[in-house]
Amino acid sequence: MAISKSEVEYIAKLARLKFTEEEIEAMSKELSKILDYVNKLNELDTENVEPTAHIVPIHNVFREDEVKPSMPREKVLMNAPFTEQGCFKVPKIIE
């Protein structure tokens, strides 16, 4: 199963990753190899098999609607590279 360079570029954009031409080439080869291996799964007929998203079958885990204290704003912002007016700052976005 080959994954083309243009597919790698599309996926990279979706994943917000940047690669050089060389890296794209290498990634295309590596992913193709991994997918070849993963395609082993196609040996199995799973037509009538239900998918398992949660291995432990529990349901209805809720919390009550109770307000708990939030974090002090200094702590909210403490790891941010750019802040202004109590907010996180990002490059200008035109909406």
């Binding site: 885990v61 809720f62 919390r63 009550e64 609607d65 109770e66 307000v67 708990k68 204290p69 939030s70 974090m71 704003r73 909210v76 912002l77 007016q85 109590g86 907010c87 996180f88």
Partner: peptide
């Protein structure tokens, strides 16, 4: 458990969960 009150000072109704800090998990209200 952060409050949903409207119109508060920015980023004062925020905790590790709704800030999406690494390792935090959601629990449904």
């Amino acid at each position: 458990g952060c409050s949903t009150k409207f119109g508060s000072e920015p980023n004062t109704q925020v905790c590790p969960v709704c800030l999406g800090l690494p390792g935090t998990l959601p629990v449904l209200n």
